[in-house]
Amino acid sequence: MWAIARTELKKNIQDIGLWFWTFVLPIIFIVAFVAIFKGDESASYQEVVTQIIPGYTVMFAFFIMISMVIAFVKDRERGMVARIASTPLPIKDYFIGKWIPFMMIVLIQITVLLTFGVLVYDLALGDPIALITLSLALAFIVTGFGMAMAVLVKTENMGIALTQVIALGGALLGGLWMPVEIMPDYVQTISQMLPQYWALEGYKEIILQDGGVSDIWKPLLILVGAGAAGGILAYAAYPRFLRQSRS
């Protein structure tokens, strides 16, 4: 398991595209959108930065799914899935080994973006335990979804397209770009079915309402539950994934 994790981490560190998607692009978006909306008289500065920084952090966290799709599909197309299946490594260890580095990357991403918010925009983060717990839950759901998507999609392009639908569609409808309160009622109903909405609600509760872990139990439950569903789906789809492996 650790051999897989170590290898995956080494590969990801060398991937310049991953650095760009994970750190550079989110910071550009945060800087640009804070600059645009900080003059908005209908919202306070704190409301603007609390909407934009956690909002884009949640949105870009979902883009890890692209890297996961690429990693798994490449493994399948190069025959690596079958090759690893010929070793004594249990299937669950294969998945955990692949999952750990992506979980780490998302956690580092969240840390970097929120720290950027604190240092540049005086973002008040609130209870650190609640913040860490929610960030772990966010990293868990995006990587859980990523694993399911990576194992189920037929091609890399299909995975990238679906990730963009989930990340951008979820960002729009989940209130990451603008508060859900200003959206029509039916969109607000849809929002509540999306993990992005619950992740942002959790961050807002911690940052704006000074909430603790007990105040964000509902977002935590939804995020962890959905992430676990993704992981179970990926595990269940493994025999099909293995059959499709070359070699």
Binding site: K11, R78, G79, M80, R83, S247
Partner: peptide, 9 residues
């Protein structure tokens, strides 16, 4: 097992 494909990183 040595597969037909080159399975290397």
């Amino acid at each position: 097992y040595i597969p037909q494909e080159i399975c290397l990183e």
